[in-house]
């Protein structure tokens, strides 16, 4: 009986207190599985972010359907600041290719956090020594070079941009998510795929070949890998990850989220941790991020149109 009294006391103490935001845990929806790039980045980010916010932030993995399942859930959540969404470029491409009905305009941008430059990567059993050899081959035999990609998402758009800029034709095979794509590369079941610096260990061991990186200048970590621009292919590409909240979230809540994000994203320790994931911290505030999304959206729409994938 004593026990149940104690329990009763706890129950009473649990009654909701209407304190200032946040007075209960905030759900950060990551629309991909646990252990993926997005998940790892936000689980790192979340620690300092929640400290600065003065509440608990819970990373909730809601994966499936090219990342659109989580997006749908985030969009349908009440705009009270207790649900925020970890977005990346795939929101534009999945919208325009008709995979999902969720657009970036269903959300209010909080901040841009990171950018992960894409690297065109080849399987170990492919005969090519460099990007030039690959492109020559692809040109000679159009539609035979296989590319693994999450169809309609970033890993599909990046090679598609290369395809267009270099005037070649690839054959796409659906491998959803980085992990599946990398496995297929390791086993040479596909010829090419988009990857990033997190795969450096495998590239060093000769298990995959970095052909070219889609940055403006070569990266210090991989000085031997040329940029696509050097090869005369005018493509720059990175996966940009930011935070958004459902449309209609109150301004004071948005301001709090924005301030916490600014502090956590610009913390030098975070940049150091991100380096290990081949990722650059690229912070923009809500205003800057809105402009960024708008521009990115237009680029993606154009791209989808040129690829013949535009459904809207």
């Amino acid at each position: 009986m004593k026990n149940s009294l104690a329990i009763l006391a706890v129950a009473l103490a649990m009654a909701p207190a209407h304190a200032a935001y946040p007075d209960r845990p905030i759900k950060l929806i990551v629309p991909w599985g646990a252990g993926g790039d997005t998940d790892v980045i936000y689980r790192t980010f979340q620690q300092d972010f929640q400290k600065r916010l003065g509440g608990t932030v819970v990373v909730a993995n809601v994966g499936g359907a090219s990342g659109t399942k989580g997006a749908k859930e985030a969009k349908d959540s009440p705009p009270d600041g207790y649900t925020i969404f970890a977005v990346h470029d795939s929101i534009h491409s999945t919208y325009y290719t008709g995979v999902a009905d969720v657009n970036w305009t269903d959300f209010q941008p909080i901040c841009l956090v990171t950018a992960t430059p894409s690297i065109l990567t080849a399987a170990p059993k492919t005969p090519w020594k460099d990007a030039k050899a690959m492109l020559a081959d692809a040109k000679a035999k159009p539609g035979t070079v296989t590319v693994g990609a999450t169809l309609g998402s970033t890993s599909h758009f990046f090679p598609a941009m290369v395809e267009k800029a270099a005037g070649v034709k690839f054959k796409y095979v659906s491998y959803e998510g980085t992990a599946a794509r990398m496995n297929a590369l390791l086993g040479s079941h596909i010829d090419l795929a988009e990857s990033n610096l997190t795969q450096k260990g495998k590239a060093d061991a000769g298990q995959m070949k970095f052909l070219a990186i889609a940055t403006e200048k070569r990266m210090a970590e991989i000085p031997n890998v040329p940029t696509l621009k050097e090869l005369g292919i005018d493509v720059e590409y990175a996966v940009n990850r930011g935070l958004v909240a459902p449309k209609g979230t109150p301004p004071d809540v948005m301001a709090k989220l924005g301030a916490a994000c600014a502090g956590a994203a610009t913390n030098p320790a975070f940049a150091e941790q991100m380096k290990k994931h081949g990722t650059i911290v690229h912070y923009l505030d809500a205003k800057g991020y809105t402009a960024f999304l708008k521009k990115n959206d237009a680029v993606n729409k154009q791209l989808a149109k040129e690829l013949g994938l535009l459904k809207r």
Partner: peptide
Amino acid sequence: VLALATTVATYVIFDEYLAVLLPRGSWTG
């Protein structure tokens, strides 16, 4: 006692401590 203990124990463990966000009532808040 069972109903109260189950409710309180699971709620405290999951929602408060393990950060599994359990549903809140749309009627009751």
